[in-house]
Amino acid sequence: MPDRILSSSAALAEALHEEMERDETIFIVGEDLVAHAGIFGQFKGIPEKFPGRIIDTPISETCIAGCGLGAAMTGMRPLVDFHFSDFVTCGMDELCNQAAKIRYMFGGQVKLPMVVWCPDGAGLRAAAQHSQSLESWFVHMPGLKVVIPSEPADVKGLIKAAIRDDDPVMFFQHKKLFAKEGPVPEEEYVIPLGQAAVKREGKDVSLLCYGSGYYLCVEAAEKLAGDGIEAEVVDLRTLKPLDMDTVAVSIQKTHRAVVVHEACRTGGFGSELAARIQDELFDELDAPVKRVGAKDFPIPFSPPMEDFVLPNVSDVLKAVHAVTYR
């Protein structure tokens, strides 16, 4: 049976319907969820089908995160909606000092099956406080897992894995990609955390990416093919745990790597990945690893400035030309 075409939003909603049907300990908690089925319509049908299991809160991000945490510690499987990923700053203690550490500090006495769902990313002219990509903060925090799907099929398979996981998972989904459509299998499937996907094969350069960066790489790879450069696109999908094996196999083939993400470059995940590549695969490299990311500025409001700060396809092409010397 051919796959259906679904948007990322629809893929997410479908996964949640299936999971909530399967496990009655799953519930969703956050701001403005019931009236519009989430501010992006991402929980379509859930308020009607699972009344009482999608819960509106006051604007209290600290306690929303705490609610998820306390519930996860006592037998529930919450999905905490952070409204905009930028607001994680208001729940940082709960996420980083509590959720990330509670299992460890208490000697493994407890499981914390909690998904923190964070719509992130720029491009909606939402300016500096509603547009960030903050995933690397959480990669830096032992005890959390970090997932960033790109295509609708990944959204569905990964949210299922995140929900079923017994550890706290930061799940970032780019706001601009909610409407993006793609094939989604009909049958039940789960994409395990920590499994990257080679989505386009190539022998000349590895484009290592995730989230919105994936789409930049796909477009860049098309253009590069016209120039005779075969780029391999590796969608990391999960940053923690990281599928370094798939990265290694790709680099052993191409000997060149460009890491592409929307988050700003300094201290971004690309820095970590580049460091690991030089550490573990130095002899495989024929060129330094390049990083493509946003310029180190807050996201400005006015469209020409926002577009200038964000990474684009030509940045990817430039990086590829630099590492391939072509």
């Binding site: 705490g66 306390g70 519930a71 510690m73 203690d93 709960e94």
Partner: peptide, 24 residues
């Protein structure tokens, strides 16, 4: 459910535990 090294750190957690009780 634990002592806490962060002052007031336990209160959001206990609210979550209370919500869990209500849901269960």
């Amino acid at each position: 459910l634990g002592a806490n090294g962060v002052v007031a750190g336990g209160l959001p957690i206990i609210t979550g535990a209370g919500l869990s009780i209500k849901l269960r």
